[in-house]
Design a binder for these strands. Sequence first.
DNA 1: GGGCGCTATTTGTCTATACATATTACATTG
DNA 2: CAATGTAATATGTATAGACAAATAGCGCCC
Lengths: 245, 245
Amino acid sequence: MKATSKRDAGGGVALYQRIRSDIEGRIMSGEWPPGHRLPFEHELMNTYSCARMTVNKVLSGLAAAGLVERRRRAGSFVSRPKVHSAVLQIPDLKAEVENRGERYGYTLLQRQKRQATRDDKARLDLGPRTPVLALRCRHDAARQPFALEDRILNLDAVPAAADQDFSIVPPSTWLVDHVPWTEAEHRISAGNADSTLAAELNIEEGAACLIIERRTWRSGEPITAVRLIHPGPLYDLTARFTPSS
Amino acid sequence: MKATSKRDAGGGVALYQRIRSDIEGRIMSGEWPPGHRLPFEHELMNTYSCARMTVNKVLSGLAAAGLVERRRRAGSFVSRPKVHSAVLQIPDLKAEVENRGERYGYTLLQRQKRQATRDDKARLDLGPRTPVLALRCRHDAARQPFALEDRILNLDAVPAAADQDFSIVPPSTWLVDHVPWTEAEHRISAGNADSTLAAELNIEEGAACLIIERRTWRSGEPITAVRLIHPGPLYDLTARFTPSS
DNA sequence: GGGCGCTATTTGTCTATACATATTACATTG
DNA sequence: CAATGTAATATGTATAGACAAATAGCGCCC
């Protein structure tokens, strides 16, 4: 059995995948450093004995993934890793706690329907007299306070939320299943716990906390702003990152 | 001039792009909610009067971007936004400070070449008797302490670093230009400043700090571990995110 | 009714060809 | 020599046709 010249899809993995892994390997290993011009499509076409469309798909894919940049007439070049970027996963807290194998608990501390205050408006770019739902709740892991959630929800954008009581289902869980979003902004900072927070999270006043704020919009219309406050030493965000993926 | 049946590349944007934007729009707007089965390739092919390869490229692209999932014989489905994920950009501190339009300053506080201590080994999974370079430096923004950097560097992996004195060029800048990496891990947490740190950053003892730790490898070989400590209120990580991109 | 295998359908991959478009390098001209 | 036009070249997009692989769902048999 020789390598047939055409129609060779029945091998092991797809030819397309083999070529891609091959090229990715050379880039990752440093054999083709940033800035290096990789072979032209017609050269790769000869190297791998395939049609141009096949190598084109590979190179386009690598370009879409940001590993190479392509310029007409000039060729394809290994791109310099733009900035150190990490994909931070901020999943549902319930899922996250249960992933750690710990018992998850949820308590609604406060629920108030009101017209947006000056503060609310600043948090979410709301217009005047917008009805909002303000929620404050606590998430526990292994029966210990794990995060305090402070959220406002634009009821003009999500009127259905007014009928939800959120005493059992956390707002984040409900939102994920019911409200799609198009833009999000995250902000991560650190702060010292004030006395209220210290009491709610059962930590000492002044203890360092990790603060994650997230705002989401749907086609420009503000939906919700949430502040998650974690006891500093108890929680950390971890992200593993491989440029290839 | 009617829409020609074939060879219509000369319009405005590429047909491929039009179809993709169209489908993305329907997904984003909620018209096609998560779980919805989108039209089969042959249906889209009729809708847009084009070849299957063209819609195939669109759908494959959407799948690669994570917006849809495809199953043979079943069809293509809008995927549930897996987890809330945000692309956190952690660029070079110098670039970041200058982007804010502030004056950047850098001071090397400590530089020590040594065999890996027990602590170093725990930080980077180093073998015994590995030579490391330990650095401690301060980054200023607008003449105010902005971050303390505490780094160890595996000299077996990056021997050239031993010849660098890092009194002018920050290690992060030098590394970005000289050492490629294949894997990275980020960890973000909060902690209270101890007396040493408080003195170095010119803040009060006990003040909350944002701690970013990053470890990088090259094909499994540990390269460097760095801890960046920012005064909590002074610094925050912000990331805007649109699922489409 | 339950388990098994067949088949039709849908996506996955590949080819060969064609024309469009951008850009570089070179030649021509003022 | 500089500005400008032109040809060569590499990528971008699109087509039609073909076969491969997975699988949902149906019918068959016990």
